[in-house]
Design a binder for these strands. Structure first.
Length: 283
DNA sequence: ATGCCTACTACAAGTAGA
């Protein structure tokens, strides 16, 4: 199963870009962040035309997350547990169910045919998938930074609880954390930024240390891999980026990891998001 | 030092992003 996460920076303004990339890469499951749309305004039909089922957790003007899946979506949960007063739409979680065998419908009727179809096009096992847009936290000195840290504490609590379940867990999204110096072209310019504060990085490490694997780092130990480049000052042309979009895998999910990559080419598309997709292949 | 750029809201210029 090919699973991608992408901060799309406005799904309505970016719909042609999104559809072009999906048509090219054909991921089975996609987590979108910063859809900047209410649920009713989400262009679901455009994605359904590509074969996706769509679930959203939208908000007017900013934030907003969505999951697109060619496999069945079940048991959708909107919002990160732990604070009923938090109205920001930054988390949606669902079970991606195994592909339904359709061998009989095709006149096959043999079990081997059905299994081959699952192994090729789908996935034999359900996963629990969280799609998250972690608060930015800037500027420091405002209520935004403690909100970020509080959100990360809630995420840690929830991620620990998910490990007690039976399903492999995938937590994918825009974490808004530069975890290591190697995750920025110029780490020194981020020292006063919420993304690179010791508290933000420590909270990230606590999350990973629960037993999650950073899929891209596990497959690519080399520095210089980024997922975000500012629109300003020619940042992409200078490769002046940061790696803040991540896919974390529980031990069971990590056992399924075949490959992970950052779709850097998406930043060179027409009307790009400032983030690019991160993709894993889980077998 | 600041803005550089982009989306959204709402219709101007402010909020938000990272």
């Amino acid at each position: 199963m090919k699973l991608a996460t992408w901060n799309i920076n406005g799904v309505k303004a970016r719909i042609e870009t999104a559809l072009a990339w999906l048509d090219l890469e054909k991921p089975d499951v996609v987590c979108l962040q910063e859809i900047k749309s209410v649920d009713e305004g989400f262009p679901a039909a455009d994605f359904e035309n590509l074969g996706y089922t769509v679930v959203t957790h939208g908000q007017k003007g900013f934030n907003g997350v969505a999951i697109l899946s060619k496999l069945p979506i079940e048991d959708v949960m909107r919002g990160l547990p732990g604070d009923d007063g938090d109205v920001q739409a930054r988390y949606i979680e669902a079970t991606i169910a195994p592909q339904v065998m359709s061998g009989l419908a095709n006149g096959g009727g043999q079990a081997a045919v059905g299994q081959a179809a699952v192994g090729q096009a789908g996935f034999g096992r359900a996963i629990r998938l969280g799609c998250l847009y972690l608060p930015n936290g800037n500027p420091l000195g405002t209520e935004k930074f403690p909100y970020k840290l509080g959100w990360m504490a809630r995420l840690e609590t929830h991620a620990r609880r998910l490990l007690n379940g039976e399903m492999p867990v995938v937590l994918a999204g825009d974490y808004n954390v530069i975890a290591e110096p190697a995750d920025a072209k110029r780490p020194e310019v981020w020292t006063g930024d919420a993304l690179y504060q010791p508290e933000s990085r420590a909270a990230w490490r606590r999350l990973v240390n629960l037993g999650y694997t950073d899929a891209v780092r596990a497959c690519h130990p080399e520095p210089g891999i980024y997922t975000f480049w500012d629109y300003q000052a020619g940042a992409f042309q200078k490769n002046d980026g940061i790696r803040i979009d991540h896919i974390l895998l529980s031990p069971q999910a990590a056992g399924l990891l075949r490959s992970a990559m950052v779709a850097k080419d998406a930043r060179a598309m027409e009307k790009p998001s400032d983030h690019v997709p991160v993709v894993v292949d889980l077998g």
